[in-house]
């Protein structure tokens, strides 16, 4: 088994809303897979289909080699889930929720649970209604992480955590990564978190996957901005493939270049003679904004995002 999750051409409609519109997703066993997309893109819907909660209109979804709906009971023994909106039973204390969910899943590691409670600095004795948003999320996180499972499905698990706790979360996930065969599907809006944790990511928009791969791959597809001071005038720069938005100013040339064309462009410039050079690699934000923003993503060829 090399694929923990395989989703093919998944479609899900809610009345007139087409929440998923032919989504493909592949998560390899043992990786931390980032699942990104703007609000309403269909991340939670996908996850709910994977959990067998929603029924897809068409397309197929496989999870740990089984059918999410038919084999739900067996599969759920091997996975743990943190919902995007954690609501707790108002009259159950945190520890009761954690233990209940763990036991239903077939047992949880009490030592690991106590360690996690301590690391997340969570008072497990409070009643559900007394927890703040972040603390509710911690309850769900501890419940999920304290079980020994093959697959963790986390839907925006850190949206309510403070920076300190965010760091604890990253450490814990990194430890999970060390353990063989543990797969994590992490839906998130926090780019730094995705960058720090994810082996591969999938970006979806309007119910469709628009990009998938490692971050390095994606960076490669974007542009670097270059500001270069030249010894003499340069010609033919704007006709080189992959070069955009050339501006010349008192011997300083500014332009954007597709990362794949960088080598050829720099060779061309060295023939003139380079006096100074600053280059700005694409930031993660730019990468995502390009995919998130409808107007920009639809434009071809892509122009650089300015902030």
């Amino acid at each position: 088994m090399t694929e923990a999750i395989h989703v093919d051409a998944l479609v899900k409609t809610f009345g007139p809303t087409r929440a998923l519109d032919g989504l493909d997703l592949s998560v390899r066993t043992g990786e931390v897979h980032g699942f990104l997309g703007p609000n309403g893109a269909g991340k939670s819907t996908t996850i709910r289909i994977l959990l067998g909660l929603l029924r897809a209109d068409s397309g197929s979804a496989r999870l740990l080699g089984g059918d999410p709906r038919r084999d739900a009971a067996e599969l759920h023994r091997r996975l743990a889930y943190v919902p995007g909106d954690v609501t707790l039973w108002p009259n159950l204390s945190g520890i009761e929720v954690i233990d209940l969910l763990g036991r239903l899943r077939g047992g949880l590691n009490a030592k690991r649970r106590d360690e996690l409670l301590e690391r997340f600095d969570l008072d497990p004795r409070k009643k559900g209604r007394a927890y703040s948003k972040g603390n509710r999320q911690k309850v769900a996180l501890v419940a999920a992480l304290a079980s020994d499972v093959d697959l963790l499905i986390l839907d925006e698990p850190t949206s309510g955590l403070d920076p300190l706790m965010e760091e604890v979360f990253r450490q814990v996930i990194r430890e999970e990564q060390q353990r063989d065969g543990r797969t994590v599907l992490l839906s998130s809006h926090i780019l730094a978190e995705v960058e720090a944790l994810c082996d591969r990511i999938t970006i979806i928009r309007d119910g469709r996957a628009v990009e998938t791969g490692t971050l390095a791959d994606m960076r490669h597809l974007t542009r670097t901005s270059i500001e270069v001071g030249l010894a003499g005038p340069v010609t033919g720069l704007d006709t080189l493939p992959g070069v955009h938005d050339v501006q010349t100013h008192n011997g300083t040339v500014r332009f954007d270049v597709d990362t794949s064309a960088l080598d050829a462009v720099l060779r061309h410039l060295t023939t003139v003679g380079i006096l100074s050079l600053t280059s700005q690699p694409p930031t993660l934000e730019e990468l995502f904004l390009r995919h998130y923003d409808r107007t920009q993503a639809d434009e071809k060829p892509q122009t650089r995002v300015t902030r």
């Binding site: 204390s93 209940l100 239903l104 497990p124 004795r125 007394a130």
Partner: peptide, 22 residues
Amino acid sequence: ERLGSAESSPALRSPLALAWRL
């Protein structure tokens, strides 16, 4: 609101036990 105990009852391990609490 009072604080609950630091341990959960071992009986709380089934949907029925949860329903009883609710």
